[in-house]
């Protein structure tokens, strides 16, 4: 082996490591170190000034199984996930399909309109939805005036409608965001493929289902994972729109964790850390499943 060549290679390796170093160090200090500490904290109990090891050590994780409110918060979060994510992705894909039309005029304007909700802050849009759906808010005024409702309805005060409002808000906020990814994906598909399909007599439905969807699969998987991840960590809407109410019927996992650590709850940091680890595992598992399901290349 040529000594000189090895040293050049080694030099290149070293350069590579040096380039990676700042980001790696920052990531380790800012992300991994807190994660390790959070895990250690999840094994402890007591006030944050004087935390003790649990006995048994996994007591926080065992307690969780008896925590009806935590189980309810998981239920709520998954309800949002199961209803909202599929609707959002389908609508986003259809919108992308519409806006990808070559003959459509004012494309830029429409695209901006659909994407615009993403530019609003989570807190402010939650508050706007809250005031819109208030008993004396816009929606009630509209529905009463056109005669659908006889008297204003307390949308956010009834568990079922409060959940619907949260899902509507999520759809409004995130559909445009996902549409942009689909648009980018669609633009990556060669127009010639569609022309060939049309010449062969394929219907629009067939084109969409047999050409667009398979070619968009990587984008669908990516938006799917991002949406699942985002929904599992849902926080702002639960806090600002309904504050978890009425009677904790709309509380999400992250909101409950916040309550257990900083909010109105009992400042139990160890237990809160344990719950965040459970969410972390859920996100990892769900992402793995959707990656596996979406990856049909081999």
């Amino acid at each position: 082996m040529n000594n000189k060549k090895v040293s050049v290679l080694a030099k290149q390796h070293r350069a590579g490591w040096i380039y990676l170093m700042p980001a790696t160090l920052l990531l380790a200090v800012m992300s991994f170190w807190p994660m390790v500490n959070a895990f250690l904290m999840s094994l402890k109990t007591g006030s944050s000034a004087n935390m003790q090891w649990n006995n048994p050590i996994i007591n926080n994780y065992l307690r969780m199984q008896q925590d009806k409110l935590f189980i309810r918060s998981i239920g709520n979060t998954f309800l949002y996930l199961i209803i909202q994510v599929p609707i959002m992705l389908v609508v986003a894909m259809l919108l992308a399909q519409l806006l990808n039309n070559k003959d459509l005029r004012f494309k830029g304007l429409f695209r901006t309109c659909v994407f615009l909700p993403c530019a609003t802050s989570l807190v402010s849009y939650s508050l706007i939805f809250k005031s819109m759906f208030a008993t004396n808010g816009l929606i009630n005024a509209l529905l009463v005036n056109i005669g659908i409702l006889k008297e204003p309805m307390n949308f956010l005060g009834v568990p079922s409608t409060a959940k619907v409002v949260i899902i509507l808000a999520l759809l409004w906020r995130w559909t445009g965001y996902n549409m942009v990814f689909f648009l980018a994906g669609l633009q990556g598909i060669d127009y010639g493929v569609y022309e060939a399909a049309k010449i062969d007599g394929a219907s629009s439905w067939q084109i969409f289902w047999d050409i667009t969807v398979p070619l968009l699969m990587p984008t669908i998987v990516m938006t799917g994972i991002m949406s699942i991840n985002g929904t599992l960590q849902l926080f702002d809407e639960s806090v600002n729109l309904t504050n978890g109410g009425p009677a904790n019927s709309t509380i999400t996992m992250s909101h409950y964790i916040y309550n257990a650590s900083f909010g109105t709850g009992t400042k139990n940091f160890g237990y809160a850390a344990a719950m965040s680890f459970v969410i972390f595992i859920m996100v990892a598992v769900l992402s793995a499943i959707s990656m596996k399901a979406g990856d049909k290349r081999d």
Binding site: R63, Q66, D67, K68, N268
Partner: peptide, 13 residues
């Protein structure tokens, strides 16, 4: 009863 249980649960932690 549920409120009582949940509060006891939090105190227990």
């Amino acid at each position: 009863q549920a409120a009582e249980d949940q509060t006891k649960f939090e105190i227990g932690g």
